[in-house]
Amino acid sequence: MFTNPQYGIFVLISATLLTSVVALLVAVPLGLMAAIFLSEYASRQVRGWLKPILEILAGVPTVVFGYFALLAVTPILRLFVPGLQTFNGLSAGLILGFAILPTIASLSEDAIYAVPQSLRQGAYALGATKRETITNVVLRAGLSGIVASIILGVARAVGETMIVTLAAGQNPTLTLDPRVPIATMTAFMVQVSGGDVAVGTIKYKSLFAVGMTLFLITLVLNIFSFWFVRRFQEKYE
């Protein structure tokens, strides 16, 4: 694996970045729409069965998601995307998006649901339509919780292992092309620690370096989300 032992961590970070961005492009719009639908539009019955289904999605083992991406999603995508290889960042990212979707949808829904009814009534009383009330008042009031849910989703996407290891490959490449095999930080760690690693070798040490970097990334995300929530949270009596 170390044909060029100085290839550095950036090939891994770029792969993690790529799969996470693809995942967010799927999970943020779908998750927010699901949250808005559940809290503002769905009837009590629909909410009663839709929310548990969404939460079941969070309980699917990620190894299942990973093989689904590799064996079902990639072959289908290859019909539409020219040059898509068997292992690629695109299908891994898409399925990763569905894996973090419940996190974003469920926590955003809690944030939206917690917006006081009096604010909605205030908007309606000014002659706002339902859509104007949601986009201008409800989402703004729930913004801190929504952003926190997205950051938690990002942290999950960055740390997610099985899906990207199985579907994106284990071939470190410095690229942002979603069609080719890449190795994320987590996939690298699986690959290295899966074999026999002699203590004290460069492989052994690189494991800890990558693990530390991963930890720092999620730590920074959490600090940012903590700051953001404190800064933008509205206090309602």
């Binding site: 006081p116 009096s118 604010l119 009534q121 205030g122 201008n136 008042v137 703004r140 009031a141 509205e234």
Partner: peptide, 9 residues
């Protein structure tokens, strides 16, 4: 309204 409900803007 009974309780002041300014928007978070």
């Amino acid at each position: 309204f009974q309780k002041p409900n300014p928007f978070p803007k």
